[in-house]
Nucleic acid binder design. Structure first.
Lengths: 106, 106
DNA sequence: AATTTGCGCAACTCAAAAGTTGCACGTATA
DNA sequence: TATACGTGCAACTTTTGAGTTGCGCAAATT
């Protein structure tokens, strides 16, 4: 039942929530207004995000504001770094050359 | 049934496949040896990755080598860019200040 | 003190995804 | 040409996840 960051951002609604929270911290009710889903559905998504520490709570009276946890988002970036060399132009070009060679062989 | 890139990388096995393919192109059989799953299970994961264009085929006789598609991986990076300002130190620090203020209020 | 509001939690339903087994089809090898 | 190999495809079970409804609790409002 333990979910990781990548599972958390797999859902489109959760990604939209993160984008909204990146602009400004919001309460579950305020977030829910942006979607067609019920408050509980959105709340469940927030719970998943909080479980993975992608968002943090900030209680103000009976309201709870959620913030994006930048440090945790960075972990996604860090995983991506091992692929960075693959999307640099010169590597793409080399890859294409190799592909053409094997196409000709066939 | 249309899956997006984020759903594709949500699965740990698929992420491991991408890492292996980043080092060198491989066949489904060669990939399957790295996991406890059956060949068909791995093949299904490859199919998902191919569907999202995260990997590309290269047929050589009866073998099929799979390559990582760097350009597609870059799209993940691009989505992350809207959060980049959040994980820079000065913003984390500011966030912490705001949190402390509200903690005191409570 | 009674009521409203903002949340979280738990049980349930329904859809989707992961994994298995079995088969078919080309490509090599003997 | 017969056999073994590498692969994809389809049907099926099992697990997981998204969404809804209903409830309880604590903080504001009257």
């Amino acid at each position: 039942m333990k979910r990781d960051i990548f599972q958390a951002i797999a859902d489109p609604t959760r990604r939209a929530i993160l984008v909204l929270l990146a602009a400004q911290a919001m309460t579950p009710n305020a977030l829910a207004e942006h979607f067609n889903a019920t408050r509980q559905a959105v709340s469940k998504h927030i719970h998943v995000l909080a479980e993975c520490e992608l968002v943090r709570q900030e209680k103000r009276g009976r309201e709870i504001f959620y913030h994006v946890n930048g440090a945790k988002m960075k972990e996604i970036e860090q995983w991506l770094e091992q692929f960075k060399k693959l999307w640099q132009d010169r590597f793409d070009a080399l890859d294409q050359v190799l592909l053409n060679m094997t196409e000709e062989k066939k």
